[in-house]
């Protein structure tokens, strides 16, 4: 085979390879409008004296509007001792109560009454976890990617099944896109000193990072796990499971979750 033909072949190869690249395009599709459904997001955390509940409704999928707030619901919190406290509406569907004494290793529950419907949720607040230290490490960019820093968390896992979530702020700003949801369990390192990087984010020099390690009940963990799958833009891709609403610990037909969790916070600054 002479040189000229060789070149033709090679360029043909190159052209063919280019053609391989898949193409994406934004398209219009028509979706059925489902009946509006209630969404309840409630939380109570050790280390604070408050409980927070947000009540809203689902909206049209392609709509630009913010979720529809439900301002006229009756919201109640049941403490571990069985006492029930009503949580008042503050604004925009947010219901907040202060002055609580929050203890871990206890059960909490909420009840939301709206439109003749009642939604309840129970959660167990796990014993507290302590974040021992944070460390950062330089990562060389791979495949032409940018260089960056990993932040590692070190903490002692308690024997038995434990579930964790990591929430982080960069320069004071909470990172809360779908890709920032980081949950993990201790299946492969039960009872050990766990060292784990934040695998959802690549930090840059000069970033100051606030990290919160939350210890979750199995139900709350399951919610975040299934929530992350739905929130991900991979939902609906051939490599993902058929999408479905997250598994919730709420009864009565509402979407969302009620979480009672313990947490531990630390901060670190990556030098310039």
């Amino acid at each position: 085979m002479n040189n000229h033909r060789n070149n033709t072949l090679l360029s043909l190869l190159a052209v063919s390879m280019l053609m391989l690249t898949s193409c994406t395009e934004v398209i219009d599709i028509e979706l059925n409008e489902a009946d509006r459904r209630f969404v309840v997001e409630g939380s109570i955390t050790e280390g604070t004296d408050s409980a927070y509940v947000l009540v809203s409704k689902t909206t049209s999928f392609f709509g630009t509007f913010q979720p529809e707030a439900v301002t006229d619901a009756q919201v109640f919190l049941t403490m571990p001792d069985g006492s029930e406290i009503q949580i008042p509406h503050v604004a925009d569907g947010k219901y907040i109560v202060h002055g609580l004494t929050v203890a871990n290793a206890s059960d909490y529950s909420i009840r939301v009454e709206a439109d003749d419907k009642t939604f309840t949720g129970d959660d167990y607040m796990m014993p507290s976890v302590t974040l021992d230290s944070l460390e950062y490490e330089f990562n060389e960019g791979l495949f032409g990617g940018e260089d960056g820093y990993s932040v590692f968390l070190d903490f002692q896992d308690q024997p038995g099944k434990n579930f964790y979530r990591v929430v982080y702020k960069v320069d004071g700003e909470l990172q809360n896109t779908a890709d920032d949801i980081m949950v993990f369990d201790d299946n492969l390192n039960d009872g050990t000193l766990i060292r784990i990087p934040i695998f959802t984010y690549s930090f840059a020099a000069g970033d100051s990072v606030d990290i919160e390690l939350q210890s979750l009940s199995p139900e709350l963990y399951e919610f975040y796990q299934t929530f992350a799958a739905v929130a991900s833009e991979d939902a609906g891709s051939p490599f993902a499971a058929a999408p479905a609403n997250p598994n919730t610990n709420l009864e009565g037909g509402a979407l969302g979750v009620f979480g009672a969790y313990t947490s531990s916070k630390k901060s670190i600054r990556i030098p310039e």
């Binding site: 979706l31 489902a34 459904r37 409704k57 999928f61 909470l174 809360n176 949801i181 479905a244």
Partner: peptide, 25 residues
Amino acid sequence: PVTFPSGKYEVNGVAVPYYTERNGY
């Protein structure tokens, strides 16, 4: 057949699709 959302909502400030039916589309 494929499962598409029929609405959306927010939890923790993250907007997610709301599904009503498996393989409805």
